[in-house]
Design a protein around this nucleic acid. Sequence first.
DNA 1: TCGTGACTAGTCAATACTGACTATAAGGAT
DNA 2: ATCCTTATAGTCAGTATTGACTAGTCACGA
Lengths: 168, 168
Amino acid sequence: MERELLLLGLLRQQDTHGYQLHEFINRYLSTCTDMKKPTAYAVLDKMAARGWITIDHEGREGNRPRRRVYTITDAGEAEFQRLLRANLSQHHPVYFTNDIGIAFLDALPHTEALPLLQERRAAIDERLTYLRTLQPPHESPALILDHYLWHLQSELKWLDTLLERLND
Amino acid sequence: MERELLLLGLLRQQDTHGYQLHEFINRYLSTCTDMKKPTAYAVLDKMAARGWITIDHEGREGNRPRRRVYTITDAGEAEFQRLLRANLSQHHPVYFTNDIGIAFLDALPHTEALPLLQERRAAIDERLTYLRTLQPPHESPALILDHYLWHLQSELKWLDTLLERLND
DNA sequence: TCGTGACTAGTCAATACTGACTATAAGGAT
DNA sequence: ATCCTTATAGTCAGTATTGACTAGTCACGA
């Protein structure tokens, strides 16, 4: 359902084709989803079948390969409004895959766990440093980035309290 | 890969069957994964095929229906050690599905967005209050819970800064 | 001008995942 | 006794997802 919201929201701003949609998501919205290219096409096909979007089979412009340009319909806009309100009003938990390792921390002596977690800490720190250099394009992607930076800083702090606890 | 780590880690502590594994994950590790029951069975089958675990077809004890009890092998233990180190040392990003709505915030006037986001805030708050009442069973699940409480508090704070910004 | 790597655009076979189901048992309430 | 609900244990058909691929274009150096 969130994939539909995302694609409808982007198509609403501008008619475009699958490849470009995926590119944009990958570049500016990678903190929200890791949707792969074939998944994007599958969702677009499904939405077309439901009448939320239409497909313009664009004859190759210039001499690029053929491509399909998608346009949102009135039904699609209505669906977007519905999905947006649902997304904004509800809480979607995130899943901390990385905590599965934490759950089995006692399988390792502290002397082994510490350097591994310090490696993790460095990876988070590096990501944070990189994201801070980014300049997001529009209004709302800036919010997304801000939120992710906030989150990563919080993660770093928690990890530091854990590292301290492991140091006894 | 994280699903394998999770199931191996639990089987390592105690031989048990698929249903119980899923129950435990659902109760104490639901912040790490939302793995469904059929997925757990599929992963277990795959690991058995790879020789990481073995299956004891236990004749119905008492008169409960037949069930399969899984036992971790030496190869499984080795794999667990490998997966655990990989998980601890790397950073696995989380995906903020909930930010997809935030990305399209400007599709709504502030007067509409505000009450929706306040509803979301209430949902987070309620979840937080509930989790604070929980008493986790063992050592490590307590860490997991602690981390999730830390995260939810951070989320609440960010959402509050956003709400303030929307209030102009 | 030919080769090489990078970018654009989309596809497909295979795998992963899950909603909805079966079937048995136990614990009440009537 | 019979009915209803909840818990145990697992299955399966159908949908969702993705790694690896095709195929054309562009640009740049040798």
